[in-house]
């Protein structure tokens, strides 16, 4: 199981006074650890050392770059609108808008250009090797810093509308900090699925799971909601259980915590953990 601990670090109180268009460089003061194996959560995120967008109040600015409305441009506009309008747990998930000086720039690339920097072919990818970040691995917001390379002319232009819609949405998900969901979890249930092949129906919208991951990495969701209900506590083995946040489905792993022993029939006693795991002993 690929358990990756994500350290979510949030800004100080001074953060509230910072313009939503500015770069966050304040020291991180609060840390929360959640685990997020996509097999259980349906979302996965870059860890704190990998480049990603800073937080949910800082604008994600997107430049259509090489694309116009006549080709991929309208799909980019749709993706920006969908992300910007997305809500999570009753509030705005993030702030995204188009800008001719956006720090994210869509670039039209050939098969050759993409093959030269990547092992393997693809419709699109976020090319992060040249992107600059601050000391917290947050992308700096200078114009065109993060390039999204799209193989439009050779491949994607010939694909179905759903593939184009998916690609623009999916790549912006990477900039936010969401990681691909492998086909072993699901080929097409989430926006961040990327191993769907030609014959799957590609996801064309931001699912609740994608929003959960985005909310966690952007700090939009910080107060995890754990309960003693069996529904949100899942036994792993005889020692540990997974304690799941009912809002984001991220989890912590804890040792079982049992209640008091009580009689169970004439000869035995039993005690229960919140995950429903029962231990027995002779009376």
């Amino acid at each position: 199981m690929n358990k990756i601990k994500i350290l979510l670090l949030f800004l100080t109180a001074s953060f509230c006074a910072v313009s939503i268009l500015s770069v966050s460089s304040s020291a991180h003061t609060v840390s929360i650890v959640v685990e997020h194996d996509p097999q259980y959560t349906g979302w996965d995120i870059y860890d704190e050392s990998e480049a990603h967008h800073s937080n949910y109040t800082t604008a994600i600015t997107v430049n259509k770059g090489d694309f116009t409305s006549a080709d991929f441009g309208n799909y980019i506009t749709n993706a920006v609108t969908q992300w910007n309008n997305a809500t999570f747990n009753g509030t705005d998930l993030l702030y995204m808008k188009e800008s001719s000086t956006g720090y994210i720039k869509f670039c039209k690339k050939t098969l050759a250009q993409m093959q030269k920097v990547n092992k393997g072919n693809a419709w699109a990818f976020v090319y992060r090797s040249k992107a600059t970040t601050d000391s917290n691995s947050h992308y700096t917001l200078n114009s065109g810093n993060v390039e999204i390379w799209v193989n439009w002319d050779d491949v994607l232009s010939a694909k179905a509308t759903g593939c184009k819609t998916h690609t623009a949405l999916h790549e912006l998900g990477h900039v936010i900090g969401l990681v691909d969901i492998p086909a072993s979890v699901s080929p097409n249930a989430y926006l961040m699925c990327n191993e769907f092949g030609s014959y799957y129906s590609v996801p064309k919208e931001i699912t609740i799971n994608d929003k959960q991951g985005a909310a966690v990495i952007l700090g939009q969701h910080t107060n995890h909601s754990f309960s003693n209900s069996g529904t949100w506590n899942e036994k792993i083995d005889n020692t540990q259980h997974r304690r799941i946040c009912s809002v984001c489905e991220g989890y912590t792993i804890q040792n079982h915590s049992f209640g008091a022993w009580s009689d169970y029939g004439q000869w035995l006693q039993v005690r229960f953990c919140c995950c429903g795991y029962a231990q027995y002993r002779d009376k």
Binding site: E50, L111, V117, N118, G120, N121, A122, W123, A124, F125, V126, Y127, R128, S129, D154, V155, L156, A158, K159, C163, H166, T167, H170, E171, H174, V179, D180, A183, N194, E195, F196, G197, S198
Partner: peptide, 21 residues
């Protein structure tokens, strides 16, 4: 390098999309 790519070929048949051009 961890380039997370979209629309990667999942079979020899998918690969033809990238050879044909």
């Amino acid at each position: 390098v961890d380039i997370q790519a979209t629309g990667t070929p999942q079979s020899y048949e998918d690969l033809q999309d990238f050879i044909k051009p």
